[in-house]
């Protein structure tokens, strides 16, 4: 019963929080660029407006894929809140990722096609890092279960400082921030056509936007695990991490996917190895 309540709580709260974070993101970004920026609730207005638009599709599978993307993202957040298995939650999230790519590939537009292929490369880049983060959490706490991990008495950050940085790479890719925003950009500051989202419009684009809020919460939730012992520490950690993301986003230009794959895999694996060896030695 408690599990079900937690799942529902997660599914209800996550999009609200995710939307607010997106709004805050836009305001802070604006300030960093010496602009005033939109109101905090702008993302909600945007999505509401999208839902009011006429429905236009090019392939009916787009509709199917958009919905599955949203539901899988919501389910993964629900499972995370309910204290399920980290790896399982991640694989459920991957259902959404795969269906988003299938939706993008379902239309012949070259922009959408290239965007989807790049999205796959992004998944390819962050997935091994996330699995290694989970494995390292397991090595510290002895479990993949979020409920067991929360029972661990020390912040994970103490033993896994480098893994947190590795997670940061995955976070940047997942949030679609520069320099890793190849498939589509979170802010439209360096692309004209919207990559994988090119052919999604109106309510279906709104659905994907809400799915993206869920994913934001999903990955920030995993960041939060690194300082689960204190609420203040947890909020501090997430806030500073997100702010660092904004700085990176605003100071970097989009690079090439070849560079991303080489750079993130080599740095990410090197840091993971060092951190795992510390664990073995300790």
């Amino acid at each position: 019963m408690k599990t079900i309540i937690l799942i529902i709580l997660g599914i209800v709260i996550a999009p609200v929080l995710g939307g607010l974070i997106a709004g805050l993101d836009r305001r802070l970004t604006a300030r960093l660029q010496s602009r005033f920026g939109p109101p905090l609730l702008q993302p909600f207005y945007d999505v509401a407006k999208l839902f009011g638009k006429e429905k236009v599709v090019s392939n009916f599978w787009q509709v199917f894929c958009a919905w599955i993307y949203l539901i899988a993202a919501a389910l993964s957040v629900g499972l995370l809140f309910a204290g399920s298995d980290l790896l399982l939650v991640f694989f459920v999230q991957a259902i959404g990722a795969v269906f988003l790519v299938m939706g993008g590939l379902s239309t012949p537009s070259p922009y959408s096609q290239v965007g989807s292929q790049r999205e796959l490369i992004q998944v390819l880049t962050y997935e091994p890092l996330l699995i290694l983060v989970f494995a390292s959490i397991f090595m510290v706490t002895g479990s993949f279960r979020v409920d067991e991990i929360l029972a661990y008495e020390q912040p994970l950050l103490v033993q896994l400082p480098l893994m947190f940085i590795v997670l940061g790479y995955a976070l940047t890719i997942k949030l679609r921030k520069s320099p890793f925003d190849f498939s589509t950009s979170h802010h439209g500051h360096q692309e004209i056509v919207k990559g994988i989202l090119t052919e999604f419009s109106g309510p279906y684009l709104g659905i994907i936007e809400i799915g993206h809020w869920y994913e934001t919460i999903f990955i920030l939730g995993i960041c939060a695990l690194f300082w689960h012992t204190s609420l203040v520490g947890c909020v501090l950690l997430i806030a500073s991490t997100y702010f660092a993301e904004l700085i990176i986003d605003n100071t970097m230009a989009r690079m090439t996917w070849r560079w991303m794959l080489k750079y993130v895999w080599s740095i990410g694996l090197a840091m993971s190895f060092v951190n795992l060896i510390w664990l073995y030695a300790g």
């Binding site: 599978w61 991957a94 590939l105 379902s106 239309t107 490369i121």
Partner: peptide
């Protein structure tokens, strides 16, 4: 450490070739 790294990388690369195969079967104005 070594086994898990190889499994993590292998699992990610398999996602790439499967997902795109499923996707392109649908590519059409439909």
């Amino acid at each position: 450490m070594f086994v898990i790294t190889m499994l993590a990388l292998g699992s990610a690369v398999s996602l790439v070739f499967w997902a795109r195969w499923a996707g392109i079967l649908l590519t059409a104005p439909l």
